[in-house]
Nucleic acid binder design. Structure first.
Lengths: 121, 121
DNA sequence: GACTCCTGACTACATCTGTAATCAGTCTTG
DNA sequence: CAAGACTGATTACAGATGTAGTCAGGAGTC
């Protein structure tokens, strides 16, 4: 699966949220902070099409875009990549790391414990 | 903190592992698979210096390079970024996700449970 | 039918990245 | 001291990325 750049990812998010959409509709939904022009969004869409991670169907003289890959799968790949790179692929050091950096509240801990308990049964 | 590119990261790893080192020593230690020439490593070192994530001291007519940021901090930033982007900053969905993708073995689960138990006390 | 609007296609351009080669100066070694 | 060996600095160049502008063709409007 082709790599998706940071900015392109924002476009994917829009389409994973809701699709199919026209280019103009995507542009409307891209987060404000990006401050992208319609032209920019169109460029992103073309590149994503070229990468094969978007598909399009013609509707009159324009396209309706939709994701060609599942968010789930993409996210799996990216998180795996990070885990491999920074934690030798092991989750435990990652959790330990987050805990140390105070990114884990007691509520989080409870929640994860329940999740793990469920996984065991 | 400036972003570190994928390839540059490989150089940082070498220096986090052991430092200070000369350019030639870094080149020797960069993983084989990269197949980088000494010239390439030197380019990386310059760029990392420019980004302020490496420091150097002169030793005779050459430099000894050492990290200017802690691995710990960089890793924290990158993992936080991924978590924010893909899981709304929440760890639980991330763990759930990994479990579903079979990246969590029973042994992992045990290990994390112990870790969490330790965190609570 | 002429004019305007919207759309994808194509082009533009600076920056970042991967991957070097070259160059000028300094050390070493005969 | 002359010849090499090494070093950082500078330059090169293609592909990816962020961020658009322009253009040709069809659709709708008067």
């Amino acid at each position: 699966m082709e790599r998706i750049a940071e900015g392109e990812y924002a476009v994917m998010e829009v389409l994973w949220e809701r699709s199919p959409l026209t280019a103009a509709e995507v542009a409307e939904r891209v987060p404000e902070q990006r401050g992208w022009s319609l032209a920019t969004v169109k460029t992103m869409l073309s590149r994503l099409l070229a990468k094969g991670v978007l598909a399009h169907e013609e509707e009159g003289r324009r396209y309706l875009y939709r994701p060609a890959i599942r968010r789930e799968d993409y996210v799996a790949e990216e998180s795996g990549r990070l885990l491999d790179r920074m934690f030798g692929g092991r989750l435990t050091p990652f959790v330990a790391h987050l805990a140390e950096r105070d990114r884990l509240t007691p509520a989080d801990i409870e929640e994860i414990e329940s999740l793990l308990k469920a996984l065991k049964s």
